[in-house]
């Protein structure tokens, strides 16, 4: 009498016990790369604690972490705002808004990030400052705006330090990429959602705010997380403006001590610690968004 159901199958195909897999296969399945990375990390921490050359390099370079994080977080926050506004502009039915947004996105995405940073720092910011300056001079002649005018006219290019210009440059560059993330996320939501919201009398912005964006955010969050990690790495480019981030302090330590190995091992280690933690966070987020509501 043939049995049916799972038992019958179990008779034919013996269930695989973990112990029955050949040990070579088990070894091959281990995440060796992670293990090696961890060992290297432990070795480096050990070196920093016990080897004076490494200790010295670490203490000189570590303050750069603060600058790297400060620049990345503030530039990314601004890039998110720019991205949302420009992303909405890219799907706007207003041809002027659409064309300005698309111009920005296409131009910025066609330029290497390091060139954007240099361009913003040495061209755009000075232009902006001189515009504010001349506007202030003009306003001074208007009686009730004289004070505002004087304050604006007092603005000088040396008032905008390189840290601020670095943040502006990265935000300007990343805004274009985030705009595309927002646009794609919004467009992934079915057209019927907007129509249902509008037919209830909601305005376009109400529909965006309460109906479209809360749904799009699930699509948008993982790529935003990845872009933040990319920003952490690209923030090293601001060392061209002599901002004392991790990379710049690495360069300075190298020329100060001539200990190339110790310097760049430490810098690499610090970047990797941040980016690996970050990508673990993004993976966790992705899994949560997939399984959650």
């Amino acid at each position: 009498m043939p049995e049916s159901g799972p038992q019958a199958v179990a008779e034919v195909i013996p269930r695989k016990e973990p112990g029955l897999i050949p040990w070579t296969t088990q070894l091959a399945r281990l995440p060796w790369w992670g293990l090696i990375l961890l060992l290297l990390g432990v070795a480096l921490v050990y070196a920093i604690v016990t080897v004076p050359n490494y200790t010295d390099a670490f203490y000189f370079i570590a303050p750069g972490l603060k600058i790297t994080l400060l620049v990345s977080v503030s530039a990314f926050t601004i890039a998110l705002v720019v991205g949302l506004v420009v992303g909405l502009g890219r799907i706007s039915s207003n041809p002027i808004v659409y064309n300005i947004s698309t111009f920005y996105v296409e131009v910025v995405r066609g330029i290497p990030m390091i060139v954007i940073i240099i361009y913003v720092a040495y061209v755009l910011v000075p232009i902006l400052v001189s515009v504010v300056h001349s506007l202030g001079e003009a306003l001074q002649t208007v009686p009730w705006l004289a004070n505002t005018g004087r304050a604006m006219a007092a603005l000088h290019i040396t008032d905008i330090n390189m840290l601020a210009r670095a943040i502006a440059g990265l935000a300007f560059g990343y805004g274009a990429y985030e705009a595309e993330v927002f646009r794609a996320g919004i467009q992934s939501i079915e057209k019927g959602q907007m129509e249902a919201a509008r037919s209830l009398g909601m305005s376009y912005f109400q529909a965006m705010r309460y109906v479209i964006l809360p749904q799009a955010i699930r699509v948008i969050l993982p790529p935003l997380g990845n872009d933040f990690i990319a920003m952490l790495k690209d923030s090293s480019l601001i060392s061209v403006l002599a901002v004392r981030d991790l990379t710049q302090l690495g360069k300075l330590n190298r020329s100060r001590t001539f200990r190339t190995f110790e310097t760049w091992n430490t810098v690499t280690y610090l970047y990797l610690s941040m980016t690996i933690l970050g990508s673990m966070g993004v993976k966790w987020l992705e899994r949560k968004l997939k399984t959650g509501v």
């Binding site: 019927g192 959602q193 129509e195 249902a196 509008r198 037919s199 209830l200 909601m202």
Partner: peptide
């Protein structure tokens, strides 16, 4: 917007807000 609030619409595919 004011006019649409006075006109209810029901769609073939419901278009409820899933969130």
């Amino acid at each position: 917007d004011a006019l649409r609030a006075e006109v209810g619409m029901v769609f073939q595919l419901f278009n409820l807000f899933p969130h």
